[in-house]
Design a protein around this nucleic acid. Structure first.
Length: 482
RNA sequence: GACCCCAUCGUCUAGGGGUUAGGACACCGGCCUUUCACGCCGGCGACGCGGGUUCAAAUCCCGCUGGGGUCGCCA
């Protein structure tokens, strides 16, 4: 079977977490089966669609590495891939429905509809669906002075069954569910359920995998396929992603835009890995490379129940990749964040790789890595109050002076040579490393927390280390005098 | 309200008639240790409730409850 799957967002905002997961699952399915991943922009709502949103969706997908095989900027045989450019097609199909009497003109006004809805909502079970009084009218009855819409002539009995690869068979009673929904407006502009069917049909989509908020629509769409005499694609409805309060994920739960996670310092593959595992599993496995995801992903592994988005776990996944990805690759990324956040132009060299090697086990995000690594690049830090008070005091003065003297005498600046100096001093004075390391750490970083002291010094150059030791020494002297 | 979907630790999940119900995040201990991390070891912690079916139910069936979704000339 040839797989042609699609991701069909409406460009009314950024690419959000839920959309990204839907796109990912479709992408994985396509790659797994050497199929085609189609991107279609559902922009028929002129009011809400914006070019910025289209761009945001492209950016989000590309950042995640979910490039489409067919779609905007990647034209294929089934384009165009913007619904607003497919109006001729919809009209053609509408003609077909009109000719076959599968749709009819309905002159009911919006006011009449509102009144009807208010009534049936109040009555509940009783007058469930809207039954248009125009369904059985003929041309002779059409008022010339009123506008109309094209409604689908839905069956009034029987059932419509959705064979869903994820949810199983879902049965809808036609009397309850399928009203004579609007297929197109008077001017021929189509509505959602109609465009989706025409597009999935003409784009030869084999598997429609989307959020389960569309499950109810599927019944209507199936009826349309049948009315058109066309074969159904395979349907699969993914459970929703919820916030920590089990409500549908929204802005108030925190970041929902994929690109916000880039800003927060997440690696794209970490986001992909987390999203893959939210709603899908492969035994006890947690971490997957992209090739592994493609190989192991399957619709059978997708769960039926909705899942809660947990940023804590995504942070852990991110940390795993920061820690275990190729250091050079992370260093390159690190340079980008240093530039973005601190305006620093840092070359990606052995020193930067060394710094990343030290920081990687200590940072959950790239942003955090910038924050905890500032002192490797900038001298403008103040001493944190507590550690300064605790470690930069008179007792440390002779140690700092001794160390400064011996370090300045070093003509090779390596971890080993530095360690040698420290050990010599400690041996002579019969001290524990802690006594020396902590004051030096504060002098170097302004804090009591950093990578190993030898590593830290060796990654800062000799001159800077000496300057910072002088600064600390001076700081202690000043304090003593005051 | 009607209809549709769902239900294993706080969270993501494995397991789908007989398991000490497994793993991961988070949390709590301990070890390692120059601080902080990493790492390692250990701990806490779940089958929503009620009925069936069965020798046996977390697992199958029904009901209830709870949560989510949909009820537009939006998509």
């Amino acid at each position: 079977m040839t797989y042609r799957v699609r991701f069909a967002p409406s460009p009314t905002g950024y690419l959000h977490i839920g959309g990204a997961r839907t796109a990912l699952y479709n992408y994985l399915l396509a790659k797994k089966h050497q199929g085609t991943f189609v991107l279609r922009i559902e922009d028929t709502d002129l009011e809400r669609s914006t070019p910025e949103s289209v761009q945001a969706i492209f950016d989000g997908l590309r950042w995640l590495g979910l490039d489409w095989d067919e779609g905007p900027e990647k034209e294929g045989d089934c384009g165009p891939y913007f619904q607003t450019k497919r109006f001729d097609l919809y009209k053609q199909y509408l003609e077909r429905l009109i000719e076959q009497n599968k749709v009819y003109r309905c002159y009911t006004t919006k006011e009449e509809l509102d009144a009807y809805r208010a009534e049936y909502q109040a009555k509940g079970q009783e007058g469930v669906r809207f039954h248009s009084p125009w369904r059985d009218k003929t041309e002779a009855d059409w008022p010339a002075d009123r506008s109309f819409v094209w409604r689908f002539r839905a069956p009034q009995d029987g059932q419509t069954v959705v064979k869903d690869v994820i949810k199983g068979e879902v049965v809808f009673e036609n009397t309850m569910h399928v009203d004579d929904f609007v297929v197109a407006r008077q001017d021929g502009t189509p509505t959602y359920n109609f465009t989706v069917v025409v597009d999935d049909l003409t784009m030869k989509i084999s598997h429609v995998i989307r959020g389960d908020d569309h499950l109810n629509n599927t019944a209507k769409q199936i009826l349309l396929y049948q009315a058109l005499g066309e074969e159904l694609p395979v349907f699969g409805h993914l459970p929703m992603i919820l916030g920590s309060d089990k409500k549908r994920l929204s802005k108030r739960h925190g970041a929902t835009s994929v690109m916000q996670y880039k800003e927060m310092g997440f690696k794209p593959h970490a986001v992909v890995n987390y999203l893959a595992r939210l709603g899908w599993s492969h035994g006890d496995d947690e971490l997957f490379t992209m090739p592994e995801l493609i190989e192991k992903f399957s619709l059978e592994g997708v769960g039926k129940s909705s899942g809660v988005f947990d940023q804590e776990k995504m942070l852990w996944v991110n940390h795993q990749y920061i820690q275990h990805d190729d250091l050079k690759q992370t260093a390159t990324l690190y340079a980008e964040y240093l530039k973005e956040l601190e305006g620093l132009e840092v070359p990606v060299d052995d020193r930067l790789v060394g710094i990343v090697e030290q920081l990687a086990p200590r940072a959950n995000t790239m942003v955090e890595m910038v924050r905890i690594g500032r002192y490797f690049f900038k001298d403008d830090f103040d001493y944190d109050e507590k550690p300064a008070k605790k470690f930069l005091k008179v007792g440390a003065l002779p140690l700092l002076e001794e160390l400064t003297a011996r370090l300045s005498a070093l003509d090779t600046w390596t971890l080993e040579s530095i360690q040698g100096v420290f050990e010599a001093i400690l041996a002579e004075k019969e001290l524990k490393l802690l006594k020396l390391a902590q004051p030096v750490r504060v002098a170097m970083t302004g804090t009591s927390v950093s990578p190993g002291i030898y590593e830290t010094l060796s990654l800062i150059d000799q001159a800077t280390v000496l300057e910072r030791l002088e600064r600390a020494t001076e700081f202690v002297r000043q304090k003593t005098q005051a």
